[in-house]
Simulated assay, not measured.
Amino acid sequence: MTNTTAQPRNPLHGKTLEALVTELADFYGWEGLGERINIRCFTHDPSVSSSLKFLRKTPWARDKVESLYLFMLRDTRRAERGF
């Protein structure tokens, strides 16, 4: 038996940082992402690879990306239900 715990209700479980950045960039666009999280890797010549380099070394910025991702999920689910 393995000692891993399933996290079925955690939307971040199993998601890579690359997947988060890609989904956010697809949803908001780089300009919109830079407006919501004002960090240079999103506002000046943004790309997934340059963003990942910065985010992997900067825990506070990674936390902001994760928070925005969760907000995006809540917002899209709310819109789907018509609230």
Rank of each mutant, 00 (worst) to 15 (best):
T2V: 08
T2Y: 02
N3C: 06
T4R: 09
T4I: 09
T4V: 13
T4H: 07
T4Y: 14
T5Y: 10
T5L: 14
T5K: 11
A6F: 02
P8E: 09
R9H: 13
N10L: 05
P11D: 09
H13G: 01
H13L: 04
H13A: 15
G14L: 09
G14Y: 06
L17K: 12
L17A: 06
L17G: 05
L17H: 04
E18H: 06
A19H: 00
A19C: 01
L20W: 01
L20E: 11
V21W: 01
T22Y: 02
T22H: 00
T22C: 02
E23S: 10
L24H: 07
L24D: 06
L24E: 01
A25K: 06
A25Y: 08
F27W: 13
F27M: 10
Y28N: 11
G29V: 01
W30E: 07
E31G: 05
G32S: 11
G32E: 02
L33D: 04
L33Q: 10
G34C: 07
N38K: 09
I39Y: 05
I39H: 11
C41A: 14
C41L: 11
T43Y: 05
D45E: 08
S47H: 00
S47C: 02
S47W: 09
S47M: 03
S47E: 00
S47R: 00
S49K: 11
S49T: 13
S50W: 00
L52H: 03
L52M: 05
K53Y: 02
K53M: 01
K53E: 01
F54Q: 10
L55P: 03
L55I: 11
R56E: 04
K57Q: 13
T58S: 14
P59C: 05
P59S: 11
R62V: 00
R62W: 02
D63M: 00
K64L: 03
K64M: 02
K64Q: 07
E66S: 07
E66A: 11
S67M: 06
S67N: 10
L68W: 08
L68V: 01
Y69C: 07
Y69L: 03
Y69W: 10
L70W: 00
L70T: 09
L70A: 06
L70F: 01
F71Y: 11
F71N: 04
F71R: 06
M72T: 07
L73S: 11
L73G: 05
L73H: 13
L73V: 10
R74I: 09
R74H: 12
D75R: 14
T76P: 04
T76G: 03
R77I: 13
R77Q: 15
R78Q: 15
R78T: 14
A79C: 05
E80G: 09
E80S: 14
E80R: 15
E80Y: 12
R81L: 15
G82S: 12
F83T: 15
F83I: 15
